[in-house]
Design a protein around this nucleic acid. Structure first.
Lengths: 198, 198
DNA sequence: CTCGTTTTATGATTTTAATCATAAAATGGA
DNA sequence: TCCATTTTATGATTAAAATCATAAAACGAG
């Protein structure tokens, strides 16, 4: 996360997106740095059958889409506003200039990329070698630490739909529903009027 | 990749590992920066059944294991020498000092992490939404660009075993063998005395 | 050169999650 | 408040890759 003052110094603009608006598309060349002011953004891929895989979900203060920007490669996924969202947008050249002038920001970027790489490493191993129960629990426990799940008297509220959990873990929605029920029976989580708590 | 001169200035040491030696283990706290001089290193996880998932394979000049170093988190996977390997090892504090003193190195680190994140994004989507043929081809095509595959008169030699391809794509070795045969029949790749060419 | 290990190979069977079908409950615009 | 859409739910069936079994070929350490 880069401070507002710094971004403004380098000519950032604000842009609003409605729910379901496309921010950028897979295959496009990156031209900007994006940082969320408010709202929620998902990055995802669709395969030939229209099946979705969610690479990540981003919230207030988080940036997204930097890797291909640094590599001059095409976006490997789409970025879509999950709800009405406001975003800081900085042209690539200005962003590079900002980094050159402010070495400490580079360290922030490194930490952010490191965090995302860490998540992807964990989930990649989960998706390819573990059963549904393990995958879902791992995602939920990661979410408690890094997505914005709120704690109340029942525990952490996992505010993902069953479909989203499926799209993040590579499982079908029916499988997620059944898996969550099994996990409830085993006492690993609670279901209180259809909402999942951990 | 950080230059030898710079690493030596900050007190780097060289260490040799024999084939199959463990460089660090999942769950340990990171204390060093690692950069390969020669040889080959794999990072991988094992699930409860002993099934392996290879996170990545690294060669001459490449560094590995930085994300948890920046985050003060435990290693999410093991690092193992695939063959006899020589590695530069720099203590964490010296590495941080090196970065602070040399902002341009930060940019290199960012590009490196961005590259790895890009690979993980592509493979995550493949593993969770595509069939074996698609997964194997994507891995191979990525390997041509980023692993050290050599081109000869038959095309690029994919110098991975079927088992390694399986551990990188989340498939079983028998499935990989059958998939590669199918891909050969479809003309997507060649098999010349058991070696795979693309 | 030899022998144990690894790699590639193939066929038969099983398992597990995907798929298909259907529906009730909840949600959210108009 | 009404209706279309989304979300959760459950049962039956299927398909696809994993598993199991076995073996030949290649490799590599001594």
């Amino acid at each position: 996360m880069i401070t507002v003052e710094l971004l403004e110094k380098y000519g950032v603009i604000k842009k609003s997106f409605d729910k379901n608006d496309i921010i950028f598309e897979e295959g496009n060349l990156p031209l900007h740095y994006y940082q969320i002011i408010s709202g929620e953004v998902k990055m995802s891929n669709y395969n030939d059958d229209g099946r979705e895989f969610i690479q990540g979900i981003f919230y207030n203060g988080q940036s997204f889409g930097e890797p291909p920007l640094f590599l001059n490669q095409k976006y490997p996924a789409n970025a879509i506003a999950v709800e009405n969202t406001e975003i800081f947008i900085l042209p690539k050249e200005n962003f590079i200039k900002l980094l050159e002038d402010n070495p400490k920001v580079s360290i922030k970027i490194i930490e952010n990329l490191a965090q995302r790489l860490y998540y992807k490493s964990v989930m990649a191993a989960e998706i390819s070698t573990h059963e549904p129960e393990h995958r879902v629990l791992k995602l939920i426990d990661h979410g408690i630490a890094y997505f914005n799940f709120q704690k109340d008297k029942n525990g952490y509220l996992i505010n993902f739909t069953r479909q989203q959990i499926g799209d993040l873990t590579g499982l079908r929605v029916e499988t997620v529903i059944r898996t969550i029920k099994t996990l409830e029976k085993k006492g690993e989580l609670k279901i209180i009027n259809r909402k999942v708590y951990r």
